[in-house]
Design a protein around this nucleic acid. Structure first.
Length: 312
DNA sequence: GAACTAATTTATCCGGGGTG
DNA sequence: CACCCCGGATAAATTAGTTC
């Protein structure tokens, strides 16, 4: 189906759109110059690295400007986060290079899908799942005469769970399907969650089968811009333990992150994965030792460079 | 061509969130 | 604490290269 143009314009805020659009974005949706962002199943924003945008949708009654600002984090003030980052052993380089970066918010469903795929998996493995899911469902919209793949919505996944399993997600399939059901039934609702406290959001998400604190908190970072509860996996535990000399236990790492980063702990974890190219632990540790703490363009795939999934 | 090391390919094992 | 699954890390094997 073809969409009609609803909005266009350019942002004038001091935002690094190249980084904002490029981080953790699959090759279908970012080509180095412009990004396609799904504001909902039938609305796409095309944003380029200079900050100019057009929004295409089926009907233009929705306030897509508000959605676009939310997705791009235009109104989020990260001064406090960057101030702490500048003094941090792992993130000081990130603080310099990523001035003006904002995390893109994804919708709740995609965020949970990402989190499910990332659990008990390496970065490469997890994003491989996601890439195959998007390709295998093959849903597309037409924007500016181009066909753009879009991620399947939960209804589509429930209609055809076979494709999910065939994407190689293995035992994660069950959790993903339960999550899809919860979203379709509105048991889980973005608007409701966004009015709640961080700790209550986590509790709510933990009700879902196969969602533990890691998945819940990662989804909160990705979809809700809630950062006070950091998602702590083995990678983060070991990294925090080695770099800051904290006891190598999940609880200790979490307590340390909270005390150091306060309400930005979740964003700090997210930034660590970016700046160390989400590399396996041993390599990440070596890089911190050697002070190689900004993204390297020769690492592929990496959060900043996910093109290789399209060439698989 | 034997003796050895270096480089590259192949085989094996294990780690990791969440559940119950 | 076993289980799910696959890529990572490491061990093992093969090939390539060097010297006498």
């Amino acid at each position: 189906m073809a969409l009609k143009q609803c909005l266009s314009g350019c942002f004038t805020e001091a935002i690094d759109f190249r980084k904002t659009l490029g981080v953790y974005n699959l090759c279908h949706w970012f080509n180095g110059l412009q990004a396609y962002m799904f504001l909902d199943s039938n609305a796409v924003a095309v944003v380029d690295i200079s900050g100019c945008f057009k929004v295409y949708a089926e009907n233009c009654d929705v306030d897509y400007m508000k959605k676009l600002r939310w997705v791009l984090g235009v109104d989020e003030n990260l001064d406090e986060f960057f101030a702490i980052a500048r003094r941090d052993r792992i993130l000081k380089g990130f603080a310099d290079e990523f001035k003006g970066w904002r995390p893109r918010a994804s919708d709740l469903w995609w965020a949970l899908l990402v989190a499910h795929c990332q659990k008990a998996a390496s970065f490469r493995q997890g994003w491989g799942f996601l890439h195959r899911i998007v390709k295998s469902y093959g849903k597309e919209v037409v924007v500016e005469d181009k066909k753009i793949l879009r991620p399947p919505n939960p209804e589509e996944v429930l209609q055809d769970p076979e494709k999910l399993v065939n994407s190689g997600v293995g035992f994660r399939a069950e959790g993903i399907l339960k999550t899809a059901e919860a979203i379709v039934s509105k048991d889980l609702d973005f608007e409701k969650l966004s009015k709640m406290l961080d700790s209550d959001i986590e509790k709510q998400l933990l009700q879902l089968p196969h969602v533990g604190s890691y998945v819940a908190r990662l989804a909160m970072v990705l979809a809700l811009r809630r950062y006070s509860l950091p998602p702590v996996d083995k990678w983060v535990t070991a990294l925090v333990s080695k770099v800051y000399g904290v006891e190598q236990r999940e609880r200790a790492a979490e307590a340390y992150l909270k005390s150091r980063w306060d309400r930005w702990a979740g964003l700090a974890v997210y930034a660590m994965t970016i700046t160390l190219d989400a590399q396996p632990l041993s390599i990440a540790l070596r890089r911190v030792e050697r002070g190689v703490i900004t993204p390297r363009m020769d690492v592929e795939p990496s959060p900043l460079n996910m093109g290789s999934f399209c060439r698989e």
